[in-house]
């Protein structure tokens, strides 16, 4: 057993637990997005930040990837964390304004203004689908391509992959496109951006295989489907 202290509370963690798992065990609420207990932790979304250490050496780490260590002192809701989380949420919404998951988070953390240009992407690059495909579906048909701002999720050469069994696991787990905000509810200033809602991929495809049809790829609302949007408008 590992002894550590979270928010002033002495707690015990099993060997191999992360900070997040320990917090969840004790019912301490930590928001997550790229984490799923059935998949390996990835640490990409930076939402589950906690503060470890004390004084000058205190730093923020993602609790989903940081192991629970003996004698560790953890804070889960310090001012520093909240400030960082708010910016993280702001950055997320600036990228994907249509996600209900994100809008709810913004509402919860009282993020009221987006100071950056809205991008209208439909993928946050959290990598849940990539890990789902690889780890749970044992397939590995999709992966991250490119790097930095050009990073996206797709199949090799954007072509239908032989490995894909069109199981739809990737769509099932996506926090962005699977669940779209249906309007300004709950009320919050950020929700204004929802006005430019684009339909979800499920609106176009009754079968759960939109990923791999033709040159369809990675995240659903891409070129071939966009064509459909125009048709619908007409």
């Amino acid at each position: 057993m590992i002894n550590l202290r979270i928010d002033g509370l002495d707690v015990q963690a099993e060997d191999g637990w992360t900070i997040l798992e320990t917090c969840q065990f004790y019912g301490i609420d930590i928001p997550t997005l790229c984490y799923d207990h059935g998949l390996s932790p990835y640490g990409a979304c930076r939402l589950c930040l906690v503060e470890i250490g004390e004084g000058k050496n205190a730093k923020l780490v993602s609790s989903c990837t940081y192991p629970a260590l003996e004698g560790l002192k953890v804070k889960s809701h310090s001012n520093r964390i909240i400030k960082a989380r708010k910016i993280v949420i702001e950055l997320m919404i600036a990228r994907c304004p249509n996600s209900k998951t994100l809008q709810d988070l913004a509402s919860k953390y009282n993020v009221q203004k987006i100071r950056f240009k809205i991008k209208h992407e439909d993928c946050l690059l959290c990598g849940l689908c990539v890990r789902m495909c690889k780890e749970q579906m044992m397939s590995g048909a999709i992966d991250f391509i490119g790097r930095g701002k050009d990073r996206r999720i797709t199949t090799a050469f954007d072509e239908k992959s032989d490995l894909c069994r069109t199981c739809g696991g990737c769509m099932y787990i996506c926090p962005i496109c699977e669940l779209r905000c249906q309007g300004p509810d709950p009320p919050g200033a950020v929700c204004g951006s929802c006005l430019e809602m684009s339909p979800t991929c499920l609106d176009f495809s009754s079968e759960a295989q939109c990923f791999m049809v033709e040159s369809g790829c990675g995240t659903c609302v891409r070129n071939p489907i966009k064509k459909n949007v125009n048709e619908m408008e007409e």
């Binding site: 990409a44 930076r46 910016i87 950055l91 690059l125 701002k149 990073r151």
Partner: peptide, 12 residues
């Protein structure tokens, strides 16, 4: 250009 793009705060 050089950020790997994995974590949100760095990339975005």
């Amino acid at each position: 250009e050089e950020s790997c793009g994995k974590c949100l705060t760095c990339r975005e």
